[in-house]
Computed example of a mutant assay.
Amino acid sequence: MPLKKTTVMVDEADLDLIKQAAARDGRPESEYFREAFHLAAMRSRRWDQDMDIPVLDFGHAVTSDEVDELVRESIGGETKDPR
C-alpha cells in the first residue's frame, strides 16, 4: 500500500510517550502513528447496509455462570457438573 505524507499536531505528552515506546520496543515512531491512524480510520467506518449478524436463541436468558462455564470449557479448564 502506498503511503502518503501528512503533518499532524499532537499533544507533547503523547508524543513523548510514543518516543519512549519506540525506543523501548526498537520500533520507528512512524509505525505507532500509522497504527493509530489505521485504528481511527476503522473506528470511523460506516456501512450502507445492515450487517447480517445471526441471532442466537437459547430458549432462555443466558446467565453469567453459563458464559463462564462455556469459556472454561473452550480453554480446556475445569468445569462444574451442570446437574
Rank of each mutant, 00 (worst) to 15 (best):
residue 39 L to K: 07
residue 50 D to E: 15
residue 68 D to W: 07
residue 43 R to H: 03
residue 68 D to R: 09
residue 49 Q to P: 06
residue 47 W to Q: 10
residue 24 R to G: 08
residue 9 M to Q: 05
residue 5 K to D: 09
residue 56 L to A: 00
residue 42 M to Y: 14
residue 11 D to I: 02
residue 8 V to R: 04
residue 18 I to M: 13
residue 43 R to Y: 05
residue 4 K to A: 13
residue 10 V to D: 02
residue 63 T to I: 09
residue 23 A to I: 01
residue 24 R to N: 06
residue 81 D to C: 10
residue 81 D to W: 07
residue 32 Y to L: 09
residue 13 A to N: 09
residue 32 Y to D: 04
residue 31 E to D: 02
residue 27 R to L: 05
residue 49 Q to I: 12
residue 74 S to V: 03
residue 24 R to Y: 12
residue 8 V to K: 12
residue 32 Y to N: 03
residue 83 R to P: 10
residue 5 K to S: 08
residue 48 D to R: 14
residue 17 L to Y: 13
residue 1 M to Q: 07
residue 6 T to S: 00
residue 17 L to M: 05
residue 18 I to Q: 08
residue 38 H to S: 11
residue 27 R to P: 00
residue 82 P to W: 07
residue 60 H to K: 12
residue 9 M to D: 06
residue 36 A to G: 07
residue 50 D to M: 14
residue 67 V to C: 11
residue 72 R to S: 08
residue 49 Q to C: 02
residue 44 S to R: 15
residue 69 E to Y: 15
residue 2 P to T: 09
residue 65 D to K: 12
residue 82 P to S: 03
residue 22 A to N: 05
residue 32 Y to E: 01
residue 65 D to C: 05
residue 59 G to V: 00
residue 5 K to P: 05
residue 7 T to I: 06
residue 36 A to W: 06
residue 12 E to K: 14
residue 2 P to Y: 13
residue 11 D to F: 06
residue 14 D to V: 08
residue 70 L to F: 12
residue 52 D to R: 11
residue 38 H to C: 05
residue 23 A to P: 00
residue 16 D to I: 03
residue 2 P to N: 08
residue 20 Q to R: 14
residue 23 A to W: 10
residue 74 S to D: 14
residue 59 G to A: 02
residue 83 R to L: 08
residue 61 A to F: 02
residue 79 T to D: 13
residue 82 P to F: 08
residue 81 D to T: 12
residue 47 W to E: 14
residue 21 A to I: 12
residue 60 H to R: 15
residue 70 L to C: 10
